[in-house]
């Protein structure tokens, strides 16, 4: 139990996917202009991460034991197809949910955070529950970083920015500051 909790917290804040591992930077830069969008993107991300974790576990346990060198290809293909299927299912079952989250799903599929999750989970030899904790933690961490960045950007939009900071440079400096702030969580729950 405490192990699972540590995995979750570690993936969420100590080794935050975006701020410490640089995974999922595309949505972090691209979908962080509005808080409302960032929230939905974050939710969609958590969802896909859980699917990914389950998929990776199934593949690792039942298929890839015999051909580990096909891991990358099968991860990519299976996760992409699964997300696609889920997307179609959601579209059919709940158009509202699809409108809220669905449009982000294809964007997420080819995202380093998703593949990174699967690979890290494999490399660390996580079991089913550990993998799920890892996925939820990583997803929450991504959502947190995304929402923080979005709310900060929404504020800086109203600021009198110097000319040189009007491109993504400012976003990266903010990311650096966030990353520094998150260093405060280092060593959380260890020993």
């Amino acid at each position: 139990m405490s192990d699972l909790f540590w995995i979750l917290i570690s993936a969420m804040v100590v080794n935050n996917f975006t701020l410490a591992l640089f995974l999922g930077l595309c949505p972090f830069m691209g979908v962080s202009a509005r808080v409302a969008t960032a929230l939905r993107m974050g939710a969609a991300n958590i969802f896909v991460m859980v699917i990914t974790s389950l998929t990776a576990w199934v593949l690792n346990t039942f298929v890839l034991t015999y051909a580990p060198y096909l891991r990358l290809i099968s991860f990519i293909v299976v996760i992409a197809s699964l997300v696609q299927i889920v997307e179609m299912t959601i579209k059919k079952l709940s158009p509202t949910l699809f409108r809220e989250l669905g449009i982000f799903l294809p964007l997420i599929t080819t995202n380093c955070a998703i593949l990174g999750l699967a690979i890290f989970q494999t490399n660390r030899g996580y079991g089913l529950l550990e993998g799920l904790a890892f996925a939820v933690g990583a997803g929450l961490g991504l959502a947190l970083a995304l929402v923080l960045m979005a709310s900060i950007r929404q504020q800086t939009e109203l600021s009198d920015l110097p000319g040189l900071a009007r491109n993504m440079g400012l976003v990266l400096i903010v990311a650096a500051s966030l990353s520094m702030a998150f260093m405060g969580f280092a060593g959380l729950l260890s020993s």
Binding site: W6, S10, V14, N15, R124, A186, G187, L189, S190, S191
Partner: peptide, 8 residues
């Protein structure tokens, strides 16, 4: 292996 300051 155990969690240290940053990671395991």
């Amino acid at each position: 292996g155990e969690p240290g300051y940053q990671d395991i």
